[in-house]
Nucleic acid binder design. Structure first.
Lengths: 128, 128
DNA sequence: TGACCATATGCGTGTATAGGCATAGAGTTG
DNA sequence: CAACTCTATGCCTATACACGCATATGGTCA
């Protein structure tokens, strides 16, 4: 396998992280600030086991970071590109939804949230 | 299923398109210009059946467009966001590879190509 | 130390999909 | 129309992975 193949593999793997509704939902929860696993569970509606697994994946991939606080573990988004990626795709999806039959309001809302999260308050810890 | 779920579903599906090395390889071929299926087959090293299938997927998803030319079918990238997405992720992956053990040259090369493709010659039909 | 909370993980199952092989469909040229 | 080229697709298998359930691990407090 040549170098380019490895690159494609890595990039595909990264996109794969975001190719799962459950993970997007979790990340969406974390956009508004850091949360413990349990808080993510409540906010996302996923099971505890599932949430933990996904958070672990995202952690090992470097999308989120974590720290202990007593018995809890607090997760937060650290990947500086994540918000950009989601915004870009949301715009794509939104413009496509327009053409068909749109659940548009929530898209705009989501986009706003992503914009806020990335733009001002938590403009992240510089480059990776 | 509420609206937000649908959004996550759609976004995940879009990311899923890019979560496959074969498709990235195909899209990379198409970055330098439109190609017939056969040309993509030769350039990518994939089988004809596979290439056709992936191209079809990308077409139905609106990432590429196609037209007939005699017996051939010519594909080209139309999604205005695709190049941006790839560049963003490539930078992420590259900065991560730096930390470990880098096949860096090809990353930079790829990034350049993506940059050229998106930046000047084929700067797409404005924003979506 | 033992009870208790929050989090992580092993195991089994169901589902989605990539890829190979063979072949069907579409279009051209004699 | 027949032969040929290019492209698409049906069938099959293997693999990857999300999820649920049960349980282990790690940390706190009485």
């Amino acid at each position: 396998m040549d170098d380019l193949s490895k690159v494609f593999e890595s990039v595909a793997q990264y996109f794969g992280l975001l190719a799962e509704p459950a993970r997007l939902r979790i990340l969406h929860c974390l956009c508004s600030g850091e949360l413990s696993v349990n808080e993510v569970v409540e906010a996302s509606g996923l099971t505890q086991a599932n949430t933990s697994r996904h958070l672990n994946l995202l952690y090992r991939a470097g999308v989120v970071d974590r720290r202990r606080d007593g018995t809890q573990v607090i997760y937060r988004i650290v990947d500086p590109n994540f918000v950009d990626l989601c915004r870009t795709v949301c715009i794509t999806v939104a413009s496509r939804a327009d053409a068909h039959s749109p659940p548009r309001d929530s898209l705009l809302r989501l986009e706003q949230q992503l914009g806020e999260a990335g733009g001002s308050e938590r403009n992240g810890p510089a480059a990776a």
